[in-house]
Nucleic acid binder design. Structure first.
Lengths: 299, 299
DNA sequence: TATAAATTTGTACAATCGGTATAATATGAT
DNA sequence: ATCATATTATACCGATTGTACAAATTTATA
């Protein structure tokens, strides 16, 4: 994305946070970010499209934060999950994401609505995935229901807790309370063997068109996570390895035209790590990258 | 409320259901209900005020349905609670209340936002009250938390269940599943003695200005309920007694200028029931009515 | 450097929206 | 019949999103 365009997105986001989506006119955005109307409609076809750009940015931010919290940790440790949820709530509040979500579910733009809906589903999906880490994959039949109800409880608890305590609200207390309920609920549901929504529905909810892209994203992030994790466990002295991996992630997922030669170069540098396990996983990563560029060339 | 005005409210509601609030222009409403712009702004000061009128109508409808389901039943019977919740969901869906809610939380009209917020709190309050009926008043310290979480679970469950089954969605299955979770959760929370939000907050959330009005409404509905209940238990042959009680309710709560002489007359007719208990409760009712008119005269 | 291509600007414009104002007309009660 | 009230039709205001387009500016390329 263009630097200038990026700048407009940032400025608009700030305005949305301050004044809300509906109350911010396009004229406001033009003045605040110092561009003309023509340029705006050159970048975005509408105010809604600008908003989706903002969502994509905050999505990436959130995913990164979440993953970083997992590095070098046991995925089954529920304390890590709690921290992740807290961070999610914090960044969402910083970006006023929830307000923007609700504000948008009204708009006539069906495309935008679909985007929001998909984001919510992705979130449920992430929670479901983490619950399988924590409670064991053998309980997966019940864990989608649990993820859904956890989201509902958490949302409503936060809302009324804030209403009760206003500025003194201590969100982490709410998270802990809700997680405690969740733990008991999982046990109870597993025992009762009651199910509401089949896990298979999760895949059906996500549109086919993006499946390949998402699939690649997921695989890549997973593989990067594995490598980072190994390096972390070894407490590797050369810290810039982490930066190199971050660079690969950014270049592949965010850049418009990822520079293959650069990524190849970085991978080669990483291969100098004298560790069998790391080398094996890096090989996997290289294959993924190769597949990705093959796919681009095919188009 | 004027017949004509009522008609406009109905027509507008239909349009909102079909097209949504934002997408329905005032011009649409004028054409659909066959009035002029001047008349519209004579009836309502804004589109928002029209919406609050709709909410008030559906509120009354819901309250009536709920109460009728309780008549002649044991309040501690959880099956009645389930039926009440199902009916609530049904009428809400019929009136597209939830969609309208969400659509409005965006608007710049703070007064309207406050109205919606209050409605949600009233709903939590009702659930809390019913939970004390079902699980016992001694557990009340924990039942507000339970009511809040129940709402959250139910809402999210319905959303994703509908996403999974679309038109085949069987809401009562969702309600039953969620209530089952609730029952176990109540036991678990009582045992753990964990609390999140103090019950006292419930009263603080509601604005003082309406307290007297709400208080009267509540008392009146309660007293009417008692009388209806006694009559029902006796399986009284004269069915029009129920109609007479309904009339009192409508005249007092919905009419602009309740006709005291009519209500007095109806009360006199009811006093002819030859039953000590009914007569005592009717006396209570008469006192309430008297207090109400005293209050009006004082203004 | 010169020229062509792409981008950006400024502004005018159309259409729609919620809401105000008002003069003319219709309705209804006494 | 009269007079207050309710209703209508219409013009208008300011703000909004979005389009159109010629002129100016920046960028890439030869």
């Amino acid at each position: 994305m263009n630097d200038r365009k990026q700048h407009v997105v940032k400025m608009a986001h700030q305005l949305f946070i301050d004044k809300g989506f509906q109350s911010t006119s396009i004229q406001d955005i033009l003045e605040y970010s110092g561009i003309s109307k023509g340029t705006f409609y050159n970048y975005f076809s509408s105010k809604s499209e600008l908003l989706t750009a903002i969502f994509k940015m905050t999505d990436s931010e959130l995913e990164k934060i979440r993953n970083d919290l997992l590095i070098g940790q046991d995925p089954a440790d529920i304390e890590i999950f709690i921290k992740q949820v807290e961070m999610q709530l914090k960044t969402n509040r910083k970006n006023k994401i929830i307000t923007l979500f609700e504000e948008v579910m009204i708009s006539k733009d069906d495309e935008l609505k679909r985007t929001i809906e998909e984001r919510k589903i992705q979130n449920i999906r992430w929670i479901y995935h983490r619950l399988t880490d924590i409670f064991g994959i053998d309980k997966r039949q019940y864990l989608l229901d649990c993820a859904i109800m956890f989201m509902g409880m958490l949302r409503e608890n936060i809302k009324f807790y804030q209403l009760a305590y206003e500025s003194d609200a201590n969100i982490s207390q709410v998270v802990r309370y809700t997680v405690n309920r969740l733990v008991h609920m999982v046990n109870e549901i597993v025992q009762s063997e009651e199910r509401l929504i089949p896990v298979q529905a999760l895949e059906r909810w996500l549109p086919d068109c993006n499946r390949h892209v998402r699939s690649f994203r997921k695989k890549l992030l997973h593989q990067l996570f594995i490598v980072k994790n190994i390096l972390h466990q070894q407490n590797n002295q050369q810290l810039n390895y982490g930066d190199l991996l971050d660079f690969i992630e950014e270049e592949l997922l965010d850049a418009k035209n990822p520079r293959k030669f650069l990524i190849d170069s970085v991978l080669q540098t990483l291969q100098t790590v004298e560790d069998k396990k790391v080398q094996v996983e890096l090989q996997e990563l290289s294959i993924l990258v190769q597949e990705y560029f093959d796919q681009i060339d095919a188009k």
